[in-house]
């Protein structure tokens, strides 16, 4: 993952956006969306390696936590997508939509982590005398 390539693509997207803002205002948003997509997909290669590493580590640990690692990965994926959506909306000036996406993302993450919270509470209650 060559950081120079990433920064270069970022600058190229910036230039394309500025040029498009000059000619056609609404095409700038498409350029920024596509630039974001290109930069994100470039970094997904490394992310999948990290995910594989995490999975290998979680198999080695003794107690049964198969659900936790997958849940963590799901939450990270949701966070990545929510951050992508909100930043695009804020760029184009629609902070209201950005906050709605943020809100929905938080709700989904909380609803997904409820089983883990209940499991933690149960184990805690067992520890108490």
């Amino acid at each position: 993952m060559d950081i120079v390539k990433i920064v270069g693509i970022g600058f190229l997207t910036l230039i394309v956006i500025l040029v498009l803002k000059e000619f056609k205002k609404e095409y700038a948003i498409y350029a920024s969306i596509l630039g974001g997509i290109i930069l994100l997909t470039m970094s997904f290669g490394t992310i999948s390696e990290i995910v594989g590493f995490l999975n290998r580590i979680s198999e080695k640990t003794s107690y049964n936590n198969s659900g936790f690692i997958t849940l963590l990965l799901k939450i990270t994926g949701i966070a990545v997508l929510v951050e992508y959506g909100t930043s695009i909306c804020r760029d184009s000036g629609e902070t209201a939509i950005a906050s709605k996406i943020d809100f929905a993302g938080k709700i989904i993450i909380i609803s997904m982590s409820i089983p883990v919270i209940s499991l933690a509470l149960d184990t805690l209650l067992q520890l108490l005398p």
């Binding site: 394309v16 040029v19 000619f23 498409y30 290109i38």
Partner: peptide, 15 residues
């Protein structure tokens, strides 16, 4: 799926 799609968008927009 590299940079050329960006330039395509710019080309279509200007055209």
């Amino acid at each position: 799926m590299d940079v050329n799609i960006l330039l395509k968008i710019a080309g279509v927009g200007i055209l």
